[in-house]
Design a protein around this nucleic acid. Structure first.
Length: 423
RNA sequence: GGAGAGGUGGCUGAGUGGUCGAAAGCAGCGCUUUGCUAAAGCGCCGUACCUCAAAAGGGUACCGGGGGUUCGAAUCCCCCCCUCUCCGCCA
């Protein structure tokens, strides 16, 4: 959520920054400013009336204690009270209207972000490794999975519909190995605190990280819309400290969490959805940081490097791209995507998206910290997947496939998988 | 699911209709004194919003959340949420 004061004081700046995004958010500013004006006028009048009532009621109390009556005063205050009731209602309405408008606005992109309308304008930041030179035509992960019995898409569809996967045998074991590998790496070497959060999330928390109110159709909901299946561990983990004031010396806070993620993926059928590439339920190991505004940009670089380390240790070729203003997610001020090479797809797959949300989520969650001067300020929040499993799984088996259709696993994974190859 | 107890400022904890935004203690910040790895004394010490060009200042709201009674609610009434104890059920 953007700061209403920033909007009020620098409307042109905010409008200009929002206009670099896709969408029409920048056109809503006038409506918000008008609403803000109405709200403040109502509030000022309401406060005057409350003050009057408070003062006069006190006077009545004093007279009563001296044994005097004051029927005329009481009548006057009663009248004020009726007006207060009316004004309170109007003020509450204006307040809610303003908040609802603000919740529709995306975050301001960072001033230095590359400008652009869509993914084609995303600059490549760096590349690690090289495309593996296979001496044979690489098989696609769906074919490899069928041959080696790694997963069963048909039967998963029988149980739950299309877009679900059931890992089987060595596939299920490989999935588990990857999760444990990531969790161990981020806890032991990168010193993140592991948390295992709830997967069902209240509406408030979904609003806190920005999934709601705008993107309800992307979520799975239960209990008449009061609970949602977590679309990413970002939601429960970032909300851990909502409504809290953290002390300076405990920041930055770094969390790593494994959760399954549930997404409707509404409207994305048909494009790059083959096999495991885009499914309704997938496992992910997520990184989350709560920082001060002063350190958040450095921390984003570190978090991204931590996420990249997973691919480096697994020997997977990848590239890092920076998202241009038009391609960035709703709450993000700056995002790096990590895309891993998948030979069977002959394409890069996004496995990790590392974002700085600045104070956008913190304002929604009311998450603050006490700075060196003792003032309370909003935290910055960051998150990035330390990797979405199905796609990592795809890149891994496609990269390490052998001519005979078996898979030779990278060194780092062998202790987790318990064998060096799958055949 | 049933019965009971409770929810007050960073923490502990007073406060049952009016001068209570709220005693006291602890923690924190500042100053003074004494000196030595600390003590004592004094002062400050919630959040949000409104007002003000800004600072200073002023104001309003907030005692789990919402509604009600009343001239006036932390305090009385109703509903909800959460925590704890006991019982039931169950992995």
């Amino acid at each position: 959520m953007l700061d209403i004061r920033l909007i009020r004081e620098n409307p042109d700046y905010v409008r200009e920054r929002l206009a670099t995004r896709n969408g029409d958010a920048h056109l809503k500013l006038d409506e918000i400013l008008a609403c803000d004006k109405v709200r403040r006028d109502l509030e000022t009048r309401l406060q005057q009336l409350n003050g009057d009532r408070k003062r006069l009621s006190k006077e009545i109390g004093m007279k009563r204690s001296k044994g005097e009556q004051a029927p005329d005063l009481e009548e006057q205050v009663r009248g004020i009270g009726e007006e207060i009731t009316k004004l309170t209602e109007q003020t509450t309405q204006a307040d809610e209207a303003q908040r609802n408008l603000l919740l529709q606005l995306p975050n301001l992109p960072h001033d230095k972000n590359p400008l652009g309308a869509d993914a084609s304008a995303n600059p490549e930041v760096r590349v690690w490794g090289e495309k593996p030179a296979l001496s044979f035509a690489p098989a696609d992960h769906v074919a490899l999975g069928a041959k080696l019995g790694l997963f069963d898409l048909e039967r998963a569809a029988k149980i739950s519909g299309s877009g679900f996967v059931c890992y089987t045998g060595p596939g299920a074991r490989l999935e588990r190995a990857l999760l444990n590998f990531c969790l161990d790496l981020h806890t032991r070497e990168h010193h993140y605190l592991e948390v295992s959060p709830p997967f069902l999330i209240k509406r408030d928390s979904m609003v806190g990280t920005g999934q709601l109110p705008k993107f309800e159709e992307d979520m799975y909901g239960l209990e008449n819309g009061e609970l949602f299946l977590a679309p990413t561990a970002e939601v429960p983990v970032t909300n851990l400290h909502r409504e809290e004031i953290l002390s300076l010396n405990e920041l930055p806070k770094s969390f790593v969490a494994y959760t399954p993620c549930f997404r409707r993926e509404a409207g994305s059928a048909g494009r790059m959805t083959r096999g495991l590439i885009r499914v309704h339920q997938f496992d992910k190991v997520e990184l989350v940081k709560l920082t001060t505004p002063e350190t958040s940009w450095d921390e984003l670089e570190k978090l991204t490097a931590n996420a990249e380390r997973v691919l480096q240790l697994l020997g997977l070729h990848y590239r890092v791209i920076e998202l241009c203003t038009g391609d960035m997610g709703f709450g993000s001020a700056k995002t790096y995507d990590i895309e891993v090479w998948a030979p069977g797809q002959n394409a890069y797959l996004e496995v990790s998206s590392c974002s700085n949300y600045t104070d956008f989520q913190a304002r929604r969650m009311n998450l603050k910290f006490k700075d060196a001067e003792g003032k309370n300020r909003f935290c910055h929040t960051l998150n990035g997947s330390g990797t979405a499993m199905p796609r990592l799984f795809v890149a891994l088996i496609e990269t390490y496939q052998q001519a005979d259709g078996s898979i030779k696993l990278p060194e780092a994974l062998v202790p987790y998988f318990g064998a060096a190859e799958i055949r």
